[in-house]
């Protein structure tokens, strides 16, 4: 299966290991992975700040890079959601997948070779959870499910813990993290406190932006807790 790997700009620049793990994992699972080299950004930072009218250049560049692929896969729920909801091309909107969604729904992965003998706290990022429906929501009257937990169930030795409020937002929120700095940090601190209560070693999730925010707070606290994207775990031998 031919797959185009979508590497969001901030992952490309600051979290290349997430893109490396995505590439390796998809290849391990038998995909032919193409990495369009001139890709940049999905346009979400501008759009969520009220400047969707300025994303034409990003949209066009995305189309140039990803035209013709049936599967465009990226390790960031939020960026993928933006493309699904707002990219002008219908073909792009219907071809783009968040990586856990792709592993579960398209590749239907049922076994992995990964081992990760650690206590991890799972952060459910809102856009992946509530809009891409990667897992059920605590506020809905619906049957519980979680694509993330199903995938982590294939990893040997891992112990997965949810915080007390299992799906509260971490407070990243794009430019919210700087325009509403006080609330953003308070929300992050509260999430971390609940994860800490489970004596976890890692906070993991499917959205690097949330993890970047919580990592910033953890490092300022001098905490030993690290953050990892879920693909880094799924690809960990």
């Amino acid at each position: 299966m031919r797959v185009a790997l979508f590497v969001p700009c901030y992952i490309d620049q600051f979290y290349p290991q997430v893109a490396v793990a995505s590439l390796e994992l998809l290849e391990k699972l038998g995909c032919e992975v193409v990495v369009p080299k001139d890709q940049t950004c999905c346009g979400q930072p501008m759009a969520n700040s009220g400047f969707a009218s300025s994303t034409g250049g990003c949209d066009a560049n995305f189309t140039t890079n990803f035209d013709g692929f049936d599967y465009i896969v990226g390790p960031s729920g939020s960026c993928v959601l933006h493309l699904k909801e707002h990219h002008p091309s219908q073909k792009i909107r219907s071809s783009v997948y968040e990586i856990c969604e792709f592993l579960t729904d398209i590749l239907k992965v049922s076994s992995l070779t990964a081992k990760f003998p650690h206590r991890v706290g799972l952060h459910q990022s809102c856009h992946g959870q509530r809009f891409l429906r990667l897992s059920s929501m605590s506020e809905r009257n619906e049957k519980p499910f979680s694509k993330l937990q199903d995938l982590l169930g294939l990893v040997q030795g891992i112990e997965v813990f949810l915080p007390k409020r299992e799906d509260e937002c971490c407070g990243f929120g794009g430019t919210f993290c700087v325009s509403e700095e006080a609330v953003s940090v308070k929300m992050g601190l509260d999430r971390i406190k609940e994860h800490d209560a489970n004596a976890i070693e890692f906070i993991i999730g499917a959205d690097t932006s949330c993890l970047m925010h919580m990592e910033g707070i953890l490092r300022r606290q001098g905490s030993n807790v690290q953050v990892k994207h879920i693909v880094e775990i799924l690809n960990y031998d």
Binding site: Q13, F14, P16, V20, V35, V178, S179, E181, V185, R219
Partner: peptide
């Protein structure tokens, strides 16, 4: 930098993913 007020900046890697991939 409002980010830095209560958070550390991410540690910048030497190579971007695209540089590594090349």
């Amino acid at each position: 930098n409002p980010w830095y007020k209560q958070r550390e900046m991410p540690v910048a890697p030497k190579d971007s993913f695209q540089e590594w991939y090349k």
